Simulated scan of single mutants.
Amino acid sequence: MTAPSSSDGKTTDPSRRHPVNRSHRPVRNLNSTGRRNNMMHTVQQRTIDRVDDRLHLGPDQQVDDKALLFTPKSPQLTDPFLVLVDDLFSSPGFEWHPHRGLETVTVVLDGVLEHGDNIGHVGTLSTGDVQWMTAGRGVIHRELAFRNERAHILQLWVNLPAEQKMVDNRYQDLLAAQRPVIEADGTRIDLISGRAGGHTGPAQNHWPITGATLTLEPNRTLRHTLPAHDRAFFTVLSGTVTIAGRTLTTGQTGWSDPLPGGGPETSTIALRTGDTDQRAVVLAFSGQPMRQPVVFGGPFVMNTQAEIVQAHRDFRSGRFGAVPRQARLQYR
């Protein structure tokens, strides 16, 4: 995805797939905390410190509709996360464009996403699939709706620490059928990254990140566990849920800052649904703040303005590689 837009509409300066049998998904029934009762006395309780509302931007030259679930305007408040964008598109989508110095986590909410890049990766992702892309030293890629039909995605930008800004590029297709799921008493944790309930998500991290989709049926409680030193966000994708006593509805994002003096030990936050006829679905991610300077330059995220200038220079001079001349998948 190219650079997201801010509320004023301006650009913000911030392997091939194989068929998968989606019916063999690992499921394990555990209590909602995923921890034994004799460990509860060590657990710190989290709060929600602030709430962001969905910012609707509407259509533009690339997408049929766009919204920001949280914006890149105050990276010190979202560190290590940069922006979360909701995009719905058919054509043209996001044609060839570069990235450097960040990771993108793309969640397909609906439809089929076609992806390709200049180092040979090409394929499609379907509803529920996640792609974790590391754009370290520089990559050129595109994200399109397969056959120009429909793709509805969320894309989270995750920062890379200064010492890993120029790491090798990497793609991880984290298919819905292959991720661990933890179910208990009307709650469900679909684990993408990090640990929960004795399971480890499939994503490999340069900076430790915990990520999952949480689902609660009506009148249910889920105590979600996270490292105490992490900053966490909880974006409500559908329904209404009370998180640490704060009620959030569809499109709102609640933030839980690191606990004072918190380390890698466990903390917990309670999510509850009321007596309604709709389940709640929440995207929950957390990571320890990097506390480093953040400089945006369109699709590049570095630590200094000089590094942004160099990134643009390297892209224009071909150091990212050539822009591919790759046929669309429907024509192959």
Rank of each mutant, 00 (worst) to 15 (best):
W255T: 10
I243S: 10
D257L: 10
G274I: 05
T221N: 06
D277R: 14
A196P: 01
I192K: 11
S267K: 13
L222F: 08
Q292T: 13
A196V: 00
I189Q: 04
P180L: 01
G297S: 14
T268N: 08
S286Y: 07
L283H: 12
T253I: 10
R231M: 09
T276Q: 05
Q164L: 14
G245K: 03
G251T: 15
P208A: 13
A162D: 08
G263A: 11
G261I: 07
P208I: 08
A162K: 15
P293A: 10
D230C: 15
T215D: 04
I182S: 00
V295K: 11
R231E: 02
L226R: 12
V294I: 15
V236T: 12
V294Q: 09
H229V: 12
E183F: 01
H229W: 04
P227L: 01
R223L: 08
T247V: 06
L271S: 01
K165R: 11
T200Q: 08
T249R: 14
G251C: 04
P260I: 10
P202L: 07
A176M: 06
F296M: 13
T249L: 07
H199W: 03
H224Q: 14
L259Q: 04
T273R: 06
I243E: 12
V167D: 03
P180N: 00
W207L: 09
D275I: 01
P202F: 00
G239L: 02
P299H: 13
I189P: 07
A284S: 12
T187N: 00
P227F: 03
T276R: 05
G298M: 03
W207S: 06
S238G: 08
A212H: 04
Q164H: 14
N205C: 15
L216G: 10
L222E: 02
V167G: 03
L216E: 04
D168A: 13
V295Q: 12
D257F: 04
L214K: 12
P299D: 11
H229K: 13
A203S: 04
T210H: 10
G198P: 01
D190H: 04
V295E: 13
R195D: 02
T247S: 11
F234G: 06
D168I: 03
